[in-house]
Design a protein around this nucleic acid. Structure first.
Lengths: 153, 153
DNA sequence: TTGCCTGCAAAACCTTTGCATGTAA
DNA sequence: TTACATGCAAAGGTTTTGCAGGCAA
């Protein structure tokens, strides 16, 4: 978490912005765990911690953290964004279960070489690589087997 | 476009739904091209064609077409969904330029084997495989070289 | 002291929903 | 004839913005 703070401070200085107390509160909470989270969850968590930060400021801070590449915004098509640490993104992607909504991470060392090869081909300068597989997780496949839905095709 | 119509009709019949005129209008417009589009763009396009369909019906029809796997919903984190033909999805992913918003497709035969391998590993039954690379496109890299931004890191 | 930052509430945005009317089968 | 579908407008949920007062540097 020392790294993140330093990167954030450097970014703020470079843009003549301030490291305020609310921003520091958000920074700490965000990098205290490695969980995915939504803006709303973070706002609730901060309230629980006894260090509430307003909705507007949380959104503004998340935008800053995404701009300086400390956070990645994910969108699973649910109408709200999920955030995760950019440093956690290397070599991994997400499996999203369309039945129960569970998000499972998977690791594959070949993802990065894939990203590089494709970006080079297209003349792209890659910043983020996002791999998602939508489908049904093992648990829901099993559940389905025991109690099949009508019209399940 | 014959295929899509048949698949849609079969799906509607199986669920005791009707193939109405507005649904047919949407179906035709959607499968007339292979472009990505948003709901809003489609609504505007239908108006231009002289065959307007209401917002509510367009959204409802897009949901149906996604349910029967004729369309894929994409989310590039812009607050609105992009749709594309499911049949176009094989072996390809998207490069999204964070500067100009351009979306470039890339093809790589290895994507499908990657999906299969990962899904098997995790016990997933895959339905959609989404690969996105966010970054800067060749044109914007060039533009940037000629007129660098302040604080451009 | 200066200009950025905060929090509140209102606005904006895309998408969904309730309801009376219209229409496929 | 019966149920499903349409269109309008209003509601819904998340994210953004305007503004007056507060704070970092």
């Amino acid at each position: 978490m020392g790294d993140e703070r330093q990167i954030f401070e450097t970014y703020l200085k470079a843009h003549e912005l301030h490291l305020t107390q609310p921003r520091e509160t958000v920074l700490k909470a965000v990098f205290a765990t490695h969980e995915h989270f939504t803006a709303d969850e973070l706002i609730a968590h901060l309230r629980t911690l006894g260090t509430p930060v307003s909705k507007a400021t949380v959104y503004r801070t998340l935008a800053l953290l995404s701009e300086c590449r400390l956070l990645i915004e994910h969108d699973f098509g649910l109408g709200r964004k999920h955030y995760e640490h950019a440093s956690d993104l290397e070599h991994h992607g997400h499996l999203y279960c369309t039945d129960c909504g569970q998000i499972v991470e998977f690791y594959d060392a070949r993802l990065n070489s894939l990203q590089d090869r494709i970006s080079r081909q297209e003349g792209f300068e890659p910043a983020q690589f996002v791999v998602k597989i939508y489908g049904r997780c093992a648990r829901c496949i099993e559940k389905m087997r025991r109690a099949p839905q009508v019209g399940g095709a």
